[in-house]
Write a protein that binds this DNA or RNA. Structure first.
Length: 403
RNA sequence: GGGUAGGUAGCGAAGUGGUUAAACGCAUCAGACUGUAAAUCUGACGACUAAUGUCUUCGGAGGUUCGAAUCCUUCCCUACCCA
């Protein structure tokens, strides 16, 4: 029923940065094959994030691969820890969420994650189940097993100390609580991004200190966003959301720098090692135009979250707008009744620009066309005699109908 | 509780009485080019206005002044040192 050790390790090591310790994972898998018992794979999800993006998909894809190998995914919704906020990679204290908010986000996280995970093989638990039951007495017992130095060791805290940025008391507890989760659910393996190394290792410590078998920590790389430098995140607006419209998933993929193509293939899709090697070879050929591989990447991503047909349609639309510079098939329409509205006001009223000043700037800079004709007069008023297509900037279209 | 340094546009960071809607960098947007929402180059980047111009903004509130991000009073917030 389980794949062989080598097959499993091949899949699991794909794209993975670090396995701590690898021998222990091998041992666990051997034992699982022998006893026909799946491993518990823990993934903590952060309910402060309402929308999942390709960056989150990196660990989720790995978790899916574990599932495909027969193991059990345990998704821990950090509804309790979410009230603290993970200090990982943060320069500031996070805003604290209420319990209700974390619950809601947790639900939506699971719904979105289901696009990647196999629902039947996913156990979903909320860490408030056990964390809310810990009283101060228990907490003192747990805290006594760790030292201040051990907690302050982590980079984020060290940096914040150095840069004189505040650290709130409750943030120190975050790794402890997350580590306690591993103990509570008997995790065999904990998956996480490399920024989770510290937290995940505390989980290992925690299990050891309470006399349990220790989890193996598996770390996945962090995926850079479409800007090519920063980690993908919603706040930096360099993300590709997995629930976004197909044309946006595709378009945003086309905007990643060429150097990231291979990384996105490896971490964002679930192509096999063999397929990845083929793409890599192709990419390295001097006669290859990277654009074509980026197109295929965009196709694969849309296919993953929608289907093949939608993916093809997304390519077509992209070509139409950006290569042939034509008008897409489906664009928003309005019916314009008033006849003496100036173009500037028409643009602002339909939210194609934030303010009249912005609309004026767009016209001045040559970013506005009517039926393909560039408009440069900022005082222009359309005649409103027949329907026309208004294009503002690179990708905002509006069909104005006269009734 | 005492002391010190701070809080400036989406972010970072200049500016310490008037030519400051506020340098510069990043981000963003537009144009040119192309292999594309890549790269590069050019430009724009508070709001209203056809324009001259007007209004709002430098943690909050009040004040001094012809004139304040800049001076005074008071309040709020943060870091560091001492206790």
């Amino acid at each position: 029923m389980f794949a062989s050790l080598n097959e499993q390790m091949d899949v699991l090591k794909k794209g993975t940065v670090e396995i701590i310790p690898e021998e222990e994972l091998i041992r666990k898998i051997e034992k699982s094959i022998k006893d026909k018992k799946p491993l518990n794979i823990k993934l903590g999800c952060d309910p402060s994030v309402p929308d999942l993006h390709i960056g989150h998909s990196v660990v989720l894809n790995k978790l899916r691969e574990f599932q495909d190998l027969g193991h059990t995914a345990i998704l821990i919704v950090g509804d309790f820890t979410g009230m603290i906020g993970d200090p990982s990679g943060k320069k500031k204290t996070r805003p604290q969420l209420t319990f209700e908010e974390t619950r809601e986000h947790g639900k939506s996280y699971f719904e979105q994650a289901s696009k990647i995970l196999s629902k039947e093989k996913t156990k979903i638990v909320y860490n408030s189940e056990w964390l809310s039951k810990i009283n101060l007495h228990d907490l003192i017992g747990i805290l006594g097993k760790f030292t201040v130095q051990r907690i302050l060791e982590r980079d984020d805290f060290t940096n914040r100390m150095r840069e004189q940025v505040e650290i709130s008391m409750h943030e120190l507890l975050y790794p402890i609580m997350q580590g306690y989760d591993s103990y509570a659910i008997n995790a065999d393996v904990e998956l996480g991004g490399t920024d989770q190394k510290f937290n995940n290792l505390i989980g290992r410590d925690m299990q050891k200190r309470f006399g349990k078998e220790q989890q193996v920590v598996m770390l996945m790389p962090l995926l850079e966003g479409t800007d090519g430098s920063e980690k993908m995140s919603k706040s930096l607006n360099n993300y590709i959301g997995i629930s976004e419209e197909p044309k946006n998933i595709f378009g945003k993929t086309m905007s990643i720098p060429d150097v990231l193509i291979m990384k996105y293939y490896t971490l964002g899709t679930r192509l096999s090692t063999k397929e990845l090697n083929e793409i890599k070879a192709e990419l390295e050929k001097p006669e290859t135009n990277p654009r074509n591989l980026k197109r295929r990447l965009g196709f694969e991503l849309v296919k993953l979250y929608y289907d093949e047909q939608t993916a093809n349609a997304a390519i077509e639309e992209f070509d139409k707008i950006f290569i042939k510079k034509e008008v897409p098939d489906e664009i928003p329409e309005i019916i314009q009744k008033e006849k003496d509205v100036k173009l500037i006001n028409l643009i602002t009223a339909n939210k194609l620009a934030d303010s009249n000043a912005a609309a004026r700037r767009l016209i001045e800079q040559g970013g506005v066309t009517i039926d393909g004709e560039k408009v440069t007069d900022i005082n222009f008023t359309p005649s409103y005699k027949e329907d026309f297509v208004l294009k503002v900037g690179k990708r905002k279209f509006l069909k104005v109908k006269i009734n």
